[in-house]
């Protein structure tokens, strides 16, 4: 209704609203904790959910697959090499006659292990280092960040290769090679977060209440930076899986009798033109892993970011 200027506004057009005591303070929207809100927003993101489904499927494939398949991933059959996928061998056999399905389960498991372990090591080292550096600031921060800058300046690939040749091949050597400079990214990130957070009131409050440095870092700063840290991890894992694939290309991937998606893709790459399925199958698995982690990572980042809250 549009009011004409001529119309008079009179007293009787209004009516007082009666408020009980405390009613003004009531929260009408149902209370939602931060994490439940995150979950809610994550679930609304279709891609993120798809990513999660992919990851769960990969995990299931890696751990349940071997129970379904009658084949041993290491068992060779020199008379059944390079067989295309069939009812007997669902994904065919490789150049030593090993069942590719069983091998893929196994390779997925190894690759996931490499990725997760590398991410965890990055996490622990990076969080401690970055936390200390950011929290104390000043000279400590300067020195610690100088060291990080040095590590940043070394081409990661040279360090990784040198290290692998020095300590010899091995699953843990590969993981170590991936993390030796990888934690730097996490450390920088955590430091940045801590620098921001430590100026906030709740830290001041904690300090006023006499909390120790360690307590503040562990109880207040890290949990508040957790969102960013988790997002970073979801990108570190596929990064490490990818890095392992690159090392496989140079012949420095996980050693025998282990197999990873990287070593399988590299083996298959050699046969690209004649047995393309040997490349396509592990390549699809790598791509799925990448997609899964990236979708989940993106979804988490959006869900954790209060600024995007609507």
């Amino acid at each position: 209704m549009r009011l004409s200027s001529a119309q008079e506004i009179t007293q009787d057009m209004f009516e007082p609203l009666r408020l009980g005591t405390g009613e003004g303070e009531a929260i009408t929207r149902p209370p939602i904790s931060y994490w439940r809100e995150v979950v809610r927003r994550f679930r609304r993101n279709r891609l993120a959910v798809a990513g999660l489904v992919i990851l769960v499927a990969l995990l299931a494939f890696a751990f349940i697959g071997p129970l379904v398949s009658p084949w041993d991933p290491r068992e060779q059959s020199l008379f059944d090499t390079n067989k295309v996928p069939s009812r007997e061998h669902w994904f065919g056999t490789d150049n030593l006659g090993r069942d590719m399905f069983a091998r893929l389960c196994y390779g997925t498991k190894v690759s996931l292990f490499v990725g997760v372990m590398a991410a965890l090591i990055d996490l622990v080292v990076g969080v401690i280092y970055g936390g200390i550096s950011g929290y104390f600031g000043g000279a400590v921060d300067d020195v610690m960040m100088r060291i990080v800058d040095i590590l940043y300046g070394i081409p990661y690939i040279i360090v990784a290769i040198l290290l692998l040749v020095v300590i010899g091949p091995g699953l843990w050597s590969v993981i170590l090679a991936m993390t030796i400079t990888g934690w730097v990214g996490m450390a920088r990130l955590v430091r940045g977060q801590v620098l921001q957070l430590k100026e906030q009131e709740f830290v001041l409050a904690a300090r006023a209440l006499g909390a120790s440095h360690l307590g503040i870092i562990l109880r207040h700063l890290i949990p508040n930076a957790m969102g960013v840290i988790i997002v970073q991890m979801t990108f570190t894992i596929p990064g490490a899986i990818f890095g392992e694939a690159f090392l496989s290309f140079i012949g420095l991937g996980v050693p025998l009798p282990l197999a990873s998606l990287g070593t399988m893709a590299n083996d298959g790459y050699q046969y690209l033109r004649i047995y393309p399925y040997q490349l396509i199958i592990p390549a699809v698995a790598i791509i799925m892993t990448m997609l899964g982690f990236n979708f989940v990572g993106d979804g988490l980042r959006d869900a954790l970011d209060p600024k995007l809250r609507r």
Partner: peptide
């Protein structure tokens, strides 16, 4: 973008060349 992130360089290079 996801293809770019998901496919290792040696596979992408080899495929493109072929």
């Amino acid at each position: 973008a996801l293809i770019g992130i998901s496919v290792p360089g040696f596979i992408m290079g080899g495929l493109m060349q072929y």
